[in-house]
Simulated scan of single mutants.
Amino acid sequence: MTESTGQGGRTVLETLERGQVCKGVVSSIERFGAFVDIGGFHGLVNTAELTWAHHFDAVSDIVAIGQEVTIVVLDVDVERERAAFSLKALYPDPLEEFARVQLGRVIPGRVERVVRIGAFVRVHENFAGLVPVHELAGRNADQPESVLHIDDEVLVEVAGINLHRRRILLSLRS
């Protein structure tokens, strides 16, 4: 979880605590995350901790080398000279807000993918939900592709949200 730690970096590491908020500078970018330098100590922000956005192509889409960032310390291992940091922990989870506002409501969406088990419909910039195949059965369809197509605009009811698994269950409306 670290690049390298000199004596000054080790001193910084020994002062870090879980939940602590610090400022640092992005020192390097890897495919699995970004290293952030805090006073000579380099800790890792794993890709899963960069942003709440569901999808991005590269770490460099989120941060740049030399960029000053504010992080939350997730974990510290002084013996192994490692620390895990998060950028997204500073911000509320957009799925929780979506659940609070949209659960049970009928909202517009756009069909993103049609698969054997149903159709994925984008209902927010960061996430899509599943309209299961049994929702389509009442529409005289043996195959989801015969009812919905990519880019179709549809109305869906937000039937359920699993915050832990980050899944949204949708019901197709007319």
Score class of each variant (00 low, 15 high):
173 R>W: 12
117 I>V: 13
6 G>N: 15
60 S>M: 05
55 H>F: 07
2 T>L: 08
58 A>D: 09
152 D>I: 13
4 S>H: 06
110 R>A: 09
27 S>F: 09
117 I>H: 13
62 I>R: 13
34 A>Q: 01
112 E>L: 07
104 G>A: 15
159 A>Y: 11
110 R>P: 00
75 D>C: 01
146 S>E: 13
125 E>D: 13
124 H>W: 10
152 D>W: 12
112 E>Q: 14
126 N>W: 10
102 Q>R: 15
21 V>R: 13
59 V>T: 09
102 Q>P: 02
5 T>K: 04
159 A>W: 09
115 V>Y: 02
74 L>W: 00
154 V>F: 08
118 G>R: 02
13 L>Q: 03
32 F>S: 09
168 I>N: 05
119 A>H: 02
128 A>H: 07
99 A>Q: 11
130 L>H: 04
41 F>A: 12
97 E>G: 15
117 I>R: 14
28 S>M: 06
88 K>L: 05
85 F>L: 03
147 V>Y: 03
93 D>R: 09
79 E>C: 00
18 R>K: 14
138 G>K: 09
36 V>K: 06
151 D>F: 11
124 H>Y: 13
106 V>I: 15
47 T>H: 05
84 A>M: 01
104 G>H: 14
134 H>N: 14
145 E>M: 06
81 E>P: 05
99 A>C: 11
163 L>C: 12
159 A>V: 13
106 V>Q: 15
24 G>C: 07
69 V>N: 04
132 P>H: 10
4 S>V: 08
119 A>D: 02
1 M>L: 08
61 D>N: 13
52 W>T: 11
14 E>V: 01
100 R>I: 13
115 V>W: 01
15 T>K: 14
35 F>M: 10
25 V>H: 00
156 V>R: 04
173 R>Y: 10
160 G>T: 12
86 S>M: 00
103 L>S: 14
5 T>P: 03
171 S>C: 08
61 D>Q: 07
141 A>T: 06
32 F>E: 08
144 P>A: 04
150 I>D: 01
123 V>Y: 06
118 G>D: 02
5 T>E: 07
23 K>T: 10
20 Q>L: 13
76 V>F: 01
77 D>Q: 08
130 L>S: 03
4 S>K: 11
102 Q>W: 14
18 R>T: 14
17 E>S: 12
39 G>H: 10
141 A>K: 00
24 G>N: 06
102 Q>D: 09
44 L>W: 08
2 T>V: 11
70 T>E: 15
114 V>P: 09
91 Y>F: 15
